[in-house]
């Protein structure tokens, strides 16, 4: 999968991962893919809930060594 925009929020606490993610999505074209990295465990549920309520599409989430990687398609 082609990543169009990468946002690294490792080490940042809520609400910054979502604030940064939203900012990036706002500047993207429809259909482009955002990769967001976060070490905030709480960000997972919040991110899912937020994407669900937005026109964007949730693609995947994976975790390795405490780093969460979210892929979202701009809607």
């Amino acid at each position: 999968m082609n990543i169009d925009v990468r946002v690294d929020t490792k080490g940042m606490a809520c609400p910054m991962p979502i604030v940064k993610g939203k900012k990036a999505l706002d500047g993207m074209q429809q259909g482009q893919i955002l990769e967001l990295l976060s070490t905030d465990k709480g960000a997972l549920n919040d991110f899912q809930a937020w994407v669900k309520k937005s026109p964007n599409e949730w693609i995947s989430h994976e975790e390795s060594n405490g780093v969460h990687r979210f892929l979202i398609r701009k809607g």
Partner: peptide, 9 residues
Amino acid sequence: INVPYFELL
């Protein structure tokens, strides 16, 4: 009341 912060960005 509950309003998630990500709805208030």
